[in-house]
């Protein structure tokens, strides 16, 4: 009996290892290929770091990387500040509004980005008038863009805990609403918050349609242009954006985890 169970366990372990390796190869090969391509000497042999040097030396590329990273950061912050308390509040106090909030959050999925851009271009004339023509004003459009995905991640996290009972328990122990949200609900939906942030960063770093049609310069628009004249630098820029985004999210995840584990009795 135990021998059969042991054999089954070994088989399961082997399957897991194989699956893990397959996924690692699936994700690593394109990244390694990008690294390989971006360090090759065009039309010759050997390696060169010229494409990567261009990322730093070229002012347009450098500033577009900074712009896109700031856009990702601002989008994540604004999305979380708007969506997280709203969704918690709806679950706690006005559950009857949950369908409406879900409908509003998922609405951007049903409208093609091109149509949204045409629609909001007039609004952006006002945004530019009041806030200037910085590409960072795209934050508002990007928050709308990431709403459906962020909503799903947060909704799943909130559904996995009994928010009402936990918050009532905290209230009965003397916690005000801000304490309930910060110390009881948020730590228990942190995985969902991180997922929402991950997917938002990924979307913003790859977003081309809005930026291009609204005439803003971001990393995707620069890389698209560069791809026609200097492919290795374009690929190096793509890889850099991916790595920087991943580092940003790892930092976010690490800071959140450390913050939660340091609050003992």
């Amino acid at each position: 009996m135990s021998r059969v169970a042991g054999a089954r366990s070994v088989g399961w372990e082997a399957f897991r290892l194989l699956a893990l390796l397959s996924f690692a190869v699936f994700f690593a090969v394109p990244l390694l290929s990008m690294l390989d391509f971006s360090t090759r000497v065009v039309g010759g042999n050997g390696r060169t770091g010229q494409a990567w040097k261009n990322l730093i030396a070229d002012e347009t590329i450098r500033s577009s990387i900074v712009t896109s990273l700031l856009l990702a950061l601002f989008t994540v912050v604004l999305m979380l500040v708007l969506l997280t308390p709203t969704m918690i509040w709806v679950r706690l106090r006005v559950p009857s509004a949950s369908r409406l909030v879900e409908f509003l959050c998922l609405l951007p999925l049903t409208v093609p980005p091109l149509v949204i851009v045409v629609g909001i271009s007039n609004v952006y004339a006002w945004v530019t008038y009041f806030l200037g023509d910085s590409a960072l004003t795209l934050t508002f459009a990007y928050v709308v863009l990431v709403l459906p995905y962020a909503y799903r991640a947060l909704d799943a996290a909130l559904a996995s805990i009994d928010v009402v009972t936990l918050s009532e328990a905290a209230r009965s122990l003397g916690a005000g609403w801000s304490t309930v949200i910060a110390r009881v609900v948020l730590p228990n939906i942190w995985a969902g918050v991180t997922s929402a942030a991950f997917i938002s960063v990924a979307l913003v770093l790859g977003e081309y349609t809005f930026a291009s049609l609204l005439n803003f310069t971001t990393l995707p628009t620069v890389l698209a242009l560069l791809g026609k004249s200097d492919a290795p630098t374009s690929v190096a820029g793509s890889l850099a954006a991916l790595v920087l985004g991943a580092v940003l999210l790892l930092l976010l995840s690490f800071v959140g985890r450390r913050d939660r584990s340091s609050k003992g009795a």
Partner: peptide
Amino acid sequence: NKRDMGMVFQAYSLF
């Protein structure tokens, strides 16, 4: 939160 009461719920409510 200002009532100074302790409560045990039907559902498990530990954080």
